[in-house]
Amino acid sequence: MYRFVRPLLFRLDPETAHGITLSALDMAHRLGMAGVLGGGRVDDPVELMGLHFPNRVGLAAGLDKNGDHLDALGALGFGFVEVGTVTPRPQEGNARPRLFRLPEAGAIINRMGFNNRGVDHLVARVRSSRYTGVIGINIGKNLTTPVERAVDDYLTCLAKVHAHAHYISVNLSSPNTPGLRNLQFGEHLDALLSALREESLRLDQANGRRVPLAVKIAPDMSSDEVALVARSLTTHAIDAVIATNTTIARDAVTGLRHGKENGGLSGRPVHEASTIVVRELRRQLPGMPIIGVGGIDSGSAALAKREAGADLVQLYSGLIYRGPALVGECAQALATTGQ
């Protein structure tokens, strides 16, 4: 069905099409049709981070920043859904246009800039949701918060979402918030992770439930940089790592329309780079759960992430090009391996 609808959507501005698609999914869910669109739920249960995942395929952060469409997206057959990135205060994000399709490459460039309605709105939406699956909440910092005070924003979000998330992911790797990626390295990373882990343990005890912490990293790292990040994740007992966010590299889209736009590149061109990071992380972190994301637009692409060492995978850009049926295709491909 999606292949007939996509040409109409692709005639629209990408951000407008995104909103229309999510509204249509909400309607399909109310009519009981969302599960059919996703190809039916695939049962391939796995236990990770102390959580039960019905299958290994999740929705990546960014598609539903505010948790406004959680019920409809969850009904597509995902094993888990991650909402956000959310910041303490609402913010508009960068000026439009800020989202660009590169269909020849199966890619998207975005410079959204953490546009969201703020953490209080997201918490209210999660609380009102009827979705009973695993919910991850991705947290970040406001644009106007200096990088040296970023920890304050992360701690604010952590405290507000803790009681409503099954796991919390920390976004340190978006290229669209100036200075954010500097938090991935050295003393910045250690200070942030130390503060988050301390507060997380306090909240776990206060709320009587353990909420795992995951960190989302960039694909634009050398092996040595990945090793340094892995060391920090281990030192601070982080529960999982999400690899990866979008890339700032443009080699794969040189000469294409919109190929020079600023922002993060996602989709098929980031698949190899993100898979390399997953493989290196698995070598460095043999026992840590890894969520592989980047360029998964087919069952075989999901399987490649799994073979590189990912325990779970997440979809985003592939959904734009393939539609909801990609969820079931990837879940079935991973279930069939029996790994």
Rank of each mutant, 00 (worst) to 15 (best):
N110K: 06
V46A: 13
A34Y: 01
L256E: 02
Y167T: 07
T132F: 07
D239A: 13
H271E: 13
R181D: 04
L233I: 02
Q339D: 13
S222G: 12
S174D: 05
G93L: 08
S194A: 14
G38Y: 03
T234R: 14
E92Q: 13
A24V: 13
R6H: 12
G323K: 05
D64M: 09
I276T: 14
R282G: 00
N176V: 12
V5E: 07
R283E: 12
A218S: 15
F4A: 14
S129Q: 09
S223P: 07
G179F: 07
I296T: 01
R231A: 14
G32L: 08
M112E: 12
G38R: 04
P289H: 01
G338E: 06
L256Q: 10
S23K: 13
R111A: 13
V170C: 08
R11L: 15
L25P: 00
G318P: 06
S222C: 10
A227W: 04
V57L: 11
P45E: 02
L22D: 00
V313C: 10
A105N: 08
Y131Q: 10
M1C: 10
T85I: 12
V270E: 04
L122K: 04
I135A: 06
V327G: 01
R41D: 07
I168A: 03
N171K: 09
A75E: 09
D120R: 13
Y321I: 11
E187T: 14
H166S: 14
H121N: 11
I137C: 07
M27K: 09
Q332R: 15
A302W: 02
D68T: 11
G35C: 10
G338L: 08
R268F: 12
R101E: 02
N182E: 15
V5K: 03
D13H: 00
P286E: 06
S174C: 15
K65M: 12
T87W: 01
G287I: 07
F10P: 03
T337A: 15
Q184N: 05
D152V: 12
G38Q: 06
H166E: 12
Y321E: 02
D64I: 11
L59Y: 01
S23L: 11
D251C: 06
Y321N: 03
R250L: 08
L326V: 06
R127T: 13
R210Y: 10
R268P: 09
A165F: 07
V57Q: 04
R56L: 13
M27H: 08
V211E: 02
R3Y: 08
R56G: 04
T246L: 07
L256C: 07
I217T: 04
R250E: 07
L9V: 03
G309S: 04
G106A: 11
G19H: 14
G77L: 12
A75K: 06
V134D: 00
D64L: 11
A304Q: 11
L193T: 03
M112W: 01
L73N: 01
G77T: 08
V293P: 01
R101K: 07
E198R: 15
G267F: 04
P103T: 05
N262L: 11
M112P: 03
T254Q: 14
A159M: 05
D190Y: 04
G338F: 06
A165V: 09
N142T: 03
S169L: 09
D43K: 15
V270A: 05
V161E: 01
S223T: 13
L37T: 01
L22T: 00
I276M: 10
S266L: 11
P14L: 02
R257H: 11
